[in-house]
Simulated scan of single mutants.
Amino acid sequence: MSVLIVIPARYASTRYPGKPLVALTGASGVAKSLVQRSWEAALQVQGVDRVVVATDDDRIKATCEAFGAEVVMTPESCANGTERCSAALDALGGGYNIVVNLQGDAPLTPHWFVEDLVQGLQADVQAEVATPVLRCDGEALNGFLHDRSEGRVGGTTAVFTQERRALYFSKEVIPYTPERYANDAETPVFHHVGVYAYRPDALKLYCDWPTGPLERLEGLEQLRFLEQGRSVLCVEVEARDRQFWELNNPEDVPRLEKMMSDMGMD
């Protein structure tokens, strides 16, 4: 199957304007933009036919072309990354069996997360969309709870059926846990990793559906599929001692830089 990775990059973020161009300093002291680090993460994924950045902003376009990325210009009207992926696929003329949305705020996404995700969607013919979930240890869960107590969104959590079909995604920490866990303890909470693999037909249908109340309240694009009764496969991935976090708020910059330093990532 042919696989396309699209990195949606929007300048006008509500919570963090200009986020794709924010510089992150790696272990060697070299600073690179968030979108460049996301591009480099995408290039590590095996079995991919093409990687493009999809944007509507000339500043992002110029930055990406300077480090050698292929850029597809998409309309300003795209409401989220999924719509931007659909627009990019149209602009490229289609021709791919699976489209991966590697969101530009997750430069620490390991290549095996995406590889496992694509394999999961290929193996499950009933699933229209797939997304990775990572079981939280106590340290990650406590970080989520701390962020929420401070009024910040530290990440998205997911709950799903025994068949790994998504039930709900939330910026709150779900399910509720009546106890705290030691940093190295396994917990029942799963961190939703902001990557999606779509079949092209599902991606096209998505743009025809109206934004539902849950998507609007949570600000989570994947809820549109659930509100339409569509099947979203949750693929559990393993950290393999890699630290993972998304850049959601300005306060996350030093957190990501420390993670990169700890892991020796340039």
Rank of each mutant, 00 (worst) to 15 (best):
I7C: 03
P8F: 04
Y11K: 03
A12M: 07
T14C: 01
R15W: 12
R15S: 14
R15I: 12
G18C: 00
P20N: 12
L21S: 02
V22F: 04
V22P: 09
T25F: 04
G26C: 10
A27G: 09
S28N: 04
G29Q: 11
V30L: 13
A31C: 05
L34R: 02
Q36I: 10
Q36F: 06
R37T: 02
S38I: 03
W39Y: 15
L43W: 12
L43D: 07
Q44F: 06
Q44W: 08
V48D: 04
V53Q: 00
D56W: 07
A66C: 05
F67W: 01
G68W: 01
V71Y: 01
V71N: 00
V72G: 03
V72C: 03
M73N: 06
E76I: 10
E83L: 14
C85T: 06
A88D: 03
A88L: 12
L92W: 01
G93E: 06
G94H: 06
V99T: 01
V99Y: 00
V100G: 08
D105I: 02
A106I: 13
L108H: 02
T109G: 05
P110V: 08
H111F: 14
H111G: 07
V114G: 14
D116W: 15
Q119R: 11
G120M: 13
L121Q: 02
V125E: 13
A127R: 00
V129Y: 00
V129G: 00
A130P: 04
A130Q: 06
T131R: 07
L134R: 13
G138L: 07
L141W: 12
L141V: 05
N142P: 09
S149L: 03
S149P: 11
G151Y: 07
R152T: 05
R152A: 09
R152M: 11
G154L: 04
G154E: 08
G155V: 04
T157R: 06
V159A: 10
T161C: 06
Q162H: 11
A166T: 01
A166K: 00
L167H: 05
E172I: 07
I174F: 07
Y176E: 10
P178L: 02
Y181Q: 08
A185D: 14
E186I: 13
E186W: 11
E186C: 10
E186M: 12
V193T: 10
G194D: 14
R199T: 02
R199A: 01
D201L: 01
A202K: 01
L203E: 00
K204L: 09
L205F: 00
C207H: 12
T211L: 05
P213D: 15
P213M: 14
E215Y: 02
R216G: 12
L217S: 15
E218Y: 03
G219L: 01
G219E: 06
R230W: 01
R230D: 00
L233F: 09
C234H: 02
C234G: 00
E236K: 10
V237Q: 09
R240Y: 13
R240L: 05
D241H: 09
F244C: 03
E246F: 09
L247N: 04
L247W: 03
N249F: 08
R255E: 11
D262G: 13
M265S: 03
M265C: 06
